[in-house]
Structure formats: structure tokens, C-alpha cells
């Protein structure tokens, strides 16, 4: 890697290159773009980056990102509070919302169980899920990724929740095994939710 004439540029490139999918070359392009951009645009970007660390935290109910104590999903009276969809990451909520078909609430685990990699129940927001399950909850849809870890997690949650007399379902086949919600299209996700099966 060539030496940069400025330490500030070198530092910016290093930081940008840590972003997912950004290599050294792309990081350099971004850095030089920012150098040429008007001052207020660059300040707006740096302000936006700073704000996510100062203003955004986790909803104390569903563990999604929010700027208030409880997020807009959890406080929305028009949503079906008897239905909870469990996902691995906040990003999965965006993907499911985009289809516009699901009207219940969410719960974000922040990961999935993995026997081989030693990720256990206490490493995820599982206890927090169980403590949400009162009499008004009718169904829990487990929309963890359709891979080994997602299935382990679904099996485990089903074992935990079914004794509470709550229906536990999983989106139907059609989400390709080994895949990621992130890469499935809207139609596939909608169909999978409509045809969910009991665990």
C-alpha cells in the first residue's frame, strides 16, 4: 500500500475499509470523493455517523434499534400484539416489513444458537423473549435464517415456548436452505409467511 501524504487521509481509508464489502480500493475512492465534496456534505455525513451512537439504542421490549425507550412497532396499537415474529438481526425486520404482509410485532435475538461455535441461549435475547410471553400472545413465528443454526434456534425456542400453550410456527419451505433472509425476494418471503407450519 502506497504511503499517503496525509495521516488524516490514511486514517479515513483505514476506517472505511473496515465496513462490510469495502476493500482498500473502494475505501480510497470514498476518501477522495469526500475530499472533493462540499464541506457541509461531509459534516452532514460525520454528524449522521455520530448520531447513531448517541441517539440509537435497543427497544427494551423487542431489542430492535430505536431512539426511544420502546420502539414504534411495540407502541403501535394498529399492529397485532398477539403475534410475535422472532428474527436474528434488526436488518431482518426491514426485509419482512418491505413485503407489507406481516402485521404483528417482532423480537430480535441478535444472533442464532450454534453448537459447533459455542453460541448458547444466554448469548442471545432469548430470556427477554420468554419474559414477553403473557396470556395475550397467541402465536410466535420463528423466522430465523433457514440454515443449521437457524433451525437449532427454532427447535430450541419451540421446546421452550410450546409448554406455555402458545402456537409456535416457522415460515414454510421455499426459503432456500442455507440461505439468508437478506437474499430472498419479497414474493418468496410473503409466501413463506402465509404458509407457515406448526413446530
Amino acid at each position: 500500500m502506497a504511503q499517503h501524504s496525509s495521516q488524516a487521509i490514511a486514517t479515513l481509508i483505514d476506517e472505511l475499509a473496515r465496513l462490510p464489502g469495502v476493500g482498500k480500493k473502494t475505501a480510497q475512492r470514498f476518501a477522495f470523493h469526500l475530499l472533493r465534496a462540499p464541506g457541509e456534505r461531509v459534516l452532514a455525513l460525520s454528524e449522521a455517523v455520530r448520531a447513531i451512537k448517541e441517539k440509537v439504542w435497543h427497544c427494551s421490549t423487542c431489542w430492535n434499534f430505536t431512539e426511544s425507550e420502546i420502539c414504534e412497532f411495540c407502541t403501535d396499537p394498529r399492529r397485532d400484539h398477539s403475534l410475535i415474529c422472532v428474527v436474528e438481526q434488526p436488518n431482518d425486520v426491514l426485509i419482512i416489513e418491505k413485503t407489507g404482509h406481516f402485521r404483528g410485532l417482532y423480537h430480535i435475538l441478535h444472533g442464532s444458537l450454534s453448537p459447533m461455535d459455542g453460541i448458547h441461549a444466554e448469548d442471545l435475547k432469548i430470556q427477554e423473549l420468554v419474559s414477553r410471553l403473557n396470556e395475550s400472545v397467541r402465536e410466535v413465528v420463528i423466522a430465523t435464517n433457514p440454515n443449521i443454526e437457524g433451525n437449532v434456534t427454532a427447535q430450541y425456542l419451540a421446546r421452550l415456548i410450546k409448554p406455555l400453550n402458545i402456537l409456535v410456527t416457522r415460515p414454510a419451505q421455499g426459503l432456500p436452505m442455507g440461505g439468508d433472509l437478506e437474499y430472498a425476494d419479497d414474493v418468496t418471503i410473503s409466501r413463506a409467511f402465509e404458509g407457515r407450519t406448526e413446530l
Binding site: L113, P115, G118, A121, V130, L164
Partner: peptide, 21 residues
Amino acid sequence: LKSLRFLDSIDPGTDIASKTL
């Protein structure tokens, strides 16, 4: 082996379910 430790951790009676419920 991590996988066997995982299995121990989900053993009914010792796992998070019984602690929570």
C-alpha cells in the same frame, strides 16, 4: 467439544427455560 457443552447447556433442568419459568 463445544457441541457437547452446548448439549449439556440445553439439558432440561439446567437450561435457560427452567431458570426463566
